[in-house]
Amino acid sequence: MLGFFAAGITVDLLDLLNARRSTPSRLLGEPGPAPAELQRLLQSAVRVPDHGRLDPFRLIALEGAARVRFGETLARIHARMDPATPDAALDKDRKRYLDAPLILVVVARIDEHHAKVPAQEQLLSAGCVGYNLLLGAQALGYGAQMLTGWAAYDREVADLLGLTENERVLAFVHIGTARERAPERNRPAVANLLSHWS
Protein backbone atom coordinates (compact mmCIF):
# COMPACT_ATOMS: atom_id res chain seq x y z
CA MET A 1 0.00 0.00 0.00
CA LEU A 2 1.28 3.46 -0.89
CA GLY A 3 0.64 5.39 2.27
CA PHE A 4 1.72 6.07 5.79
CA PHE A 5 0.59 4.96 9.22
CA ALA A 6 -0.22 7.54 11.87
CA ALA A 7 -2.36 7.46 15.00
CA GLY A 8 -3.71 4.01 14.12
CA ILE A 9 -4.95 5.11 10.68
CA THR A 10 -3.44 4.20 7.35
CA VAL A 11 -3.81 6.95 4.77
CA ASP A 12 -3.44 6.17 1.08
CA LEU A 13 -1.63 9.15 -0.42
CA LEU A 14 -2.79 8.33 -3.94
CA ASP A 15 -6.40 8.48 -2.74
CA LEU A 16 -5.75 12.05 -1.58
CA LEU A 17 -4.21 12.95 -4.94
CA ASN A 18 -7.05 11.33 -6.86
CA ALA A 19 -9.62 13.24 -4.80
CA ARG A 20 -7.85 16.58 -5.32
CA ARG A 21 -9.92 19.24 -6.99
CA SER A 22 -10.04 23.01 -6.91
CA THR A 23 -13.03 24.63 -5.27
CA PRO A 24 -13.89 27.84 -7.16
CA SER A 25 -13.17 30.78 -4.87
CA ARG A 26 -16.74 32.06 -5.25
CA LEU A 27 -17.91 28.84 -3.52
CA LEU A 28 -15.68 29.39 -0.48
CA GLY A 29 -16.79 31.00 2.77
CA GLU A 30 -16.31 30.98 6.52
CA PRO A 31 -14.86 29.42 8.48
CA GLY A 32 -11.26 29.33 7.38
CA PRO A 33 -8.49 27.42 9.10
CA ALA A 34 -8.09 28.08 12.82
CA PRO A 35 -4.63 29.36 13.86
CA ALA A 36 -3.40 25.89 14.87
CA GLU A 37 -4.67 24.41 11.58
CA LEU A 38 -3.00 27.18 9.61
CA GLN A 39 0.28 26.52 11.38
CA ARG A 40 0.06 22.82 10.49
CA LEU A 41 -0.83 23.68 6.91
CA LEU A 42 2.10 26.04 6.49
CA GLN A 43 4.59 23.65 8.08
CA SER A 44 3.51 20.98 5.62
CA ALA A 45 3.33 23.29 2.60
CA VAL A 46 6.97 24.33 2.81
CA ARG A 47 8.25 20.73 2.76
CA VAL A 48 9.17 20.92 -0.91
CA PRO A 49 12.13 19.98 -3.10
CA ASP A 50 14.63 22.80 -2.63
CA HIS A 51 18.00 22.39 -4.35
CA GLY A 52 20.56 24.32 -2.33
CA ARG A 53 18.18 24.85 0.60
CA LEU A 54 17.51 28.38 -0.60
CA ASP A 55 13.90 28.69 0.60
CA PRO A 56 13.08 30.55 -2.64
CA PHE A 57 9.58 31.39 -1.45
CA ARG A 58 7.57 33.15 1.20
CA LEU A 59 3.89 33.64 1.98
CA ILE A 60 1.71 36.66 2.69
CA ALA A 61 -1.69 36.20 4.37
CA LEU A 62 -4.68 38.32 3.39
CA GLU A 63 -7.42 38.05 6.01
CA GLY A 64 -10.30 40.07 7.41
CA ALA A 65 -10.49 43.75 6.48
CA ALA A 66 -7.14 43.52 4.68
CA ARG A 67 -8.94 41.62 1.88
CA VAL A 68 -11.30 44.58 1.41
CA ARG A 69 -8.48 47.13 1.33
CA PHE A 70 -6.47 44.98 -1.06
CA GLY A 71 -9.38 44.65 -3.51
CA GLU A 72 -10.17 48.37 -3.36
CA THR A 73 -6.53 49.23 -4.04
CA LEU A 74 -6.39 46.80 -6.98
CA ALA A 75 -9.45 48.46 -8.50
CA ARG A 76 -7.76 51.88 -8.22
CA ILE A 77 -4.55 50.57 -9.80
CA HIS A 78 -6.49 48.91 -12.61
CA ALA A 79 -8.49 52.07 -13.33
CA ARG A 80 -5.31 54.15 -13.40
CA MET A 81 -3.56 51.66 -15.70
CA ASP A 82 -6.48 51.61 -18.11
CA PRO A 83 -9.09 54.35 -17.69
CA ALA A 84 -11.32 52.50 -20.18
CA THR A 85 -11.64 49.49 -17.86
CA PRO A 86 -15.35 48.65 -17.55
CA ASP A 87 -16.98 49.19 -14.16
CA ALA A 88 -17.83 45.47 -14.03
CA ALA A 89 -14.12 44.57 -14.22
CA LEU A 90 -13.27 47.04 -11.47
CA ASP A 91 -16.08 45.65 -9.33
CA LYS A 92 -14.63 42.17 -9.88
CA ASP A 93 -11.25 43.47 -8.67
CA ARG A 94 -12.90 44.81 -5.51
CA LYS A 95 -14.76 41.57 -4.72
CA ARG A 96 -12.26 38.96 -5.91
CA TYR A 97 -10.75 38.46 -2.43
CA LEU A 98 -13.91 38.60 -0.32
CA ASP A 99 -15.32 35.06 -0.56
CA ALA A 100 -12.57 32.94 0.99
CA PRO A 101 -11.68 33.99 4.54
CA LEU A 102 -7.98 33.36 3.89
CA ILE A 103 -5.88 34.12 0.85
CA LEU A 104 -2.22 33.12 0.92
CA VAL A 105 -0.04 34.93 -1.57
CA VAL A 106 2.71 32.58 -2.73
CA VAL A 107 5.81 34.64 -3.46
CA ALA A 108 8.82 33.31 -5.35
CA ARG A 109 12.19 34.74 -4.30
CA ILE A 110 14.46 34.07 -7.26
CA ASP A 111 18.23 34.52 -7.36
CA GLU A 112 18.72 34.75 -11.13
CA HIS A 113 22.51 34.62 -10.79
CA HIS A 114 22.91 31.79 -8.29
CA ALA A 115 26.12 29.89 -9.04
CA LYS A 116 24.60 26.42 -8.66
CA VAL A 117 20.79 26.53 -8.63
CA PRO A 118 19.10 27.63 -11.88
CA ALA A 119 16.21 30.08 -11.58
CA GLN A 120 13.82 27.49 -12.98
CA GLU A 121 14.55 25.11 -10.10
CA GLN A 122 13.89 27.88 -7.61
CA LEU A 123 10.62 28.71 -9.34
CA LEU A 124 9.54 25.06 -9.32
CA SER A 125 10.25 24.86 -5.60
CA ALA A 126 8.04 27.87 -4.93
CA GLY A 127 5.32 26.44 -7.18
CA CYS A 128 5.34 23.25 -5.13
CA VAL A 129 4.49 25.32 -2.05
CA GLY A 130 1.32 26.53 -3.79
CA TYR A 131 0.34 23.00 -4.72
CA ASN A 132 1.03 21.73 -1.22
CA LEU A 133 -1.28 24.43 0.11
CA LEU A 134 -4.07 23.05 -2.09
CA LEU A 135 -3.46 19.48 -0.99
CA GLY A 136 -3.04 20.41 2.66
CA ALA A 137 -6.17 22.54 2.76
CA GLN A 138 -8.19 19.67 1.30
CA ALA A 139 -6.64 17.21 3.77
CA LEU A 140 -7.83 19.50 6.58
CA GLY A 141 -11.37 19.53 5.16
CA TYR A 142 -11.26 22.93 3.43
CA GLY A 143 -11.70 23.95 -0.16
CA ALA A 144 -9.02 25.87 -2.00
CA GLN A 145 -8.23 27.39 -5.36
CA MET A 146 -4.97 28.74 -6.77
CA LEU A 147 -5.49 31.82 -8.95
CA THR A 148 -3.38 34.47 -10.64
CA GLY A 149 -5.08 37.21 -12.71
CA TRP A 150 -3.47 40.46 -13.83
CA ALA A 151 -2.52 41.40 -10.26
CA ALA A 152 -0.04 38.53 -10.05
CA TYR A 153 2.01 40.06 -12.86
CA ASP A 154 1.80 43.78 -12.04
CA ARG A 155 4.80 45.56 -10.54
CA GLU A 156 2.68 48.13 -8.70
CA VAL A 157 0.78 45.30 -7.00
CA ALA A 158 4.11 43.68 -6.13
CA ASP A 159 5.16 46.96 -4.52
CA LEU A 160 1.83 47.11 -2.67
CA LEU A 161 2.61 43.68 -1.21
CA GLY A 162 6.12 44.76 -0.24
CA LEU A 163 7.93 42.53 -2.73
CA THR A 164 11.56 43.20 -3.58
CA GLU A 165 12.97 43.28 -7.11
CA ASN A 166 13.87 39.58 -7.05
CA GLU A 167 10.40 38.54 -5.86
CA ARG A 168 7.23 37.85 -7.82
CA VAL A 169 3.71 36.70 -7.04
CA LEU A 170 3.23 33.12 -8.19
CA ALA A 171 -0.38 32.74 -7.09
CA PHE A 172 -3.14 33.71 -4.73
CA VAL A 173 -4.34 30.59 -2.90
CA HIS A 174 -7.91 31.09 -1.65
CA ILE A 175 -8.85 28.83 1.29
CA GLY A 176 -12.15 28.41 3.11
CA THR A 177 -15.12 26.15 3.71
CA ALA A 178 -16.79 24.97 0.53
CA ARG A 179 -20.44 26.06 0.35
CA GLU A 180 -21.05 23.23 -2.09
CA ARG A 181 -19.09 20.31 -3.45
CA ALA A 182 -16.53 21.32 -6.02
CA PRO A 183 -17.36 20.02 -9.49
CA GLU A 184 -15.19 17.31 -10.97
CA ARG A 185 -13.82 17.80 -14.46
CA ASN A 186 -12.50 15.49 -17.12
CA ARG A 187 -8.88 14.63 -16.49
CA PRO A 188 -6.34 13.88 -19.21
CA ALA A 189 -5.77 10.30 -20.24
CA VAL A 190 -2.33 9.27 -19.07
CA ALA A 191 -1.89 7.21 -22.24
CA ASN A 192 -1.97 10.48 -24.22
CA LEU A 193 0.70 12.06 -22.04
CA LEU A 194 3.26 9.32 -21.56
CA SER A 195 5.87 8.30 -24.09
CA HIS A 196 8.88 6.03 -23.74
CA TRP A 197 12.29 7.10 -24.93
CA SER A 198 14.62 4.43 -26.24
Rank of each mutant, 00 (worst) to 15 (best):
M1L: 10
L2V: 10
L2F: 15
G3L: 11
G3R: 13
A6Y: 08
I9S: 07
T10M: 15
V11M: 13
L13N: 12
L14C: 07
L17P: 14
L17G: 13
N18F: 14
R21S: 13
T23N: 10
P24A: 06
L28V: 08
P31K: 06
P31R: 02
A34L: 15
A36L: 06
E37M: 06
Q39I: 00
L41E: 03
S44N: 01
A45N: 05
R47L: 00
L54P: 13
L54Y: 13
P56V: 02
P56Y: 09
F57H: 05
L59G: 05
I60R: 09
A66V: 01
R69W: 15
F70P: 01
G71A: 11
G71T: 07
L74M: 04
A75I: 08
A79K: 00
M81L: 09
D82Y: 05
T85K: 11
P86G: 08
D87S: 08
A88Y: 07
L90W: 14
R94Q: 09
R96H: 12
Y97E: 00
Y97L: 03
D99S: 04
P101G: 09
V105W: 00
V105S: 01
H113I: 06
H113T: 05
H114K: 01
P118T: 00
A119M: 03
Q120G: 09
Q120R: 12
Q120H: 11
E121Y: 04
Q122K: 07
A126G: 01
V129G: 02
L134I: 02
G136F: 03
L140F: 12
Y142K: 05
Q145L: 09
Q145G: 02
T148A: 11
G149L: 05
G149M: 01
W150M: 03
A151E: 04
A152Y: 11
Y153I: 00
Y153L: 01
Y153S: 02
E156P: 06
L161M: 05
G162K: 03
G162I: 04
E165W: 06
N166G: 08
E167V: 12
V169K: 03
V169R: 06
F172C: 11
I175Q: 02
G176N: 04
E180P: 09
A182H: 05
R185P: 12
N186R: 15
V190G: 07
V190L: 15
A191C: 11
L193Q: 10
S195G: 14
S198E: 12
